[in-house]
Design a protein around this nucleic acid. Structure first.
Lengths: 112, 112
DNA sequence: CGACAATACCTCGAACTAAAAGGTATTTCA
DNA sequence: TGAAATACCTTTTAGTTCGAGGTATTGTCG
C-alpha cells in the first residue's frame, strides 16, 4: 500500500519559518525577505512556498494568526503555539542529525 | 510555462553516492549499506532510491559501470568519470552553501 | 496626474524527489 | 530443504517545492 514517509531532507522551509516566528511574530511577505537575509542569501524561498507552508502549519495547530491593518494594507501575523515550539524542537533535531550524517560522510576517508 | 528548478534541498543521495564512488568503485547493494555506515546510521537510503539515482547518473555520463561476476552473482560496479567528479564538486558546494545558510539562521538571535 | 514599483495577500499546475513495495534469481547455511 | 542473504531491478504513490499567475492597495517619480 506504499505509504511513504516524508522525504528525509524536507522540512527545511518549515524549520526556518518556525525558527523565525519563535523569535517574534511576523507576516508572510516579511518572512520571505527575512529568510533570505538570515541565511546570508543562501536560501531564497518564494511566496509560493511560504504561504502554503504557513497555512498548513496553522491548520495543524503549530501557528496562530492575527490579521492587522497597517496603513491600508492587511497583514497576517503569525506566532508559534505550544505545539509549534515542539515541532520546532523536533525539526531542529532532525536537521542536526542529517547534517551530522552528511558531514561525517563527506569528511571520512582521504580527501585527495 | 512553469519550468521548475530542482528543489533546493535535494541531491543529497546523489552527493553521498558520488562521494563514496570517488573513493573507490562499488556496486549498488554495497552502497546501500555503506551509506548507512558512513553517515553513522543517520541516513538510510533504500534500493528504491539508490538504483534509480545510479542509473540516471550513468545516463548523464557521471558514472561508468562494469559488470563483474563474483561467485555466481552479478555485480555492477560503478566509478566516477571526469564529469562525475565535477558534479561532485558542484554538489559539495551547494550543500555547504545551504548547510551554512541554515546554520546561520538557527544560530542567529537569542536562543532562549 | 498617470504610471510603475513595491507591498501584501493568495492559488494552481507542473516538476521532481524520494519512499515503499514488489518482482526476479542466485547462493549460503542451518 | 528451505529460509535468509545477496544482488539486481521497476512501478506506483506521496510529498514537497517551484514558478507563474492573479488581486488589490499604496508609495514614488516624472
Amino acid at each position: 500500500m506504499a505509504q511513504s514517509n516524508p522525504p528525509f531532507m524536507s522540512g527545511v522551509p518549515e524549520l526556518l519559518l518556525l525558527r523565525l516566528l519563535n523569535e517574534q511574530e511576523m507576516y508572510g511577505y516579511e518572512l520571505v525577505r527575512s529568510i533570505r537575509k538570515v541565511t546570508d542569501e543562501a536560501i531564497s524561498l518564494g511566496e509560493g512556498v511560504i504561504y502554503p507552508v504557513l497555512h498548513s502549519l496553522e491548520r495543524n495547530g503549530s501557528l496562530k494568526s492575527k490579521r492587522k491593518a497597517v496603513s491600508g494594507r492587511t497583514r497576517v501575523y503569525y506566532k508559534l503555539t505550544r505545539k509549534g515550539r515542539d515541532r520546532l524542537e523536533k525539526l531542529r533535531n532532525d536537521w542536526s542529525r542529517i547534517q551530522g550524517g552528511v558531514a561525517s560522510a563527506l569528511e571520512s576517508g582521504a580527501n585527495a
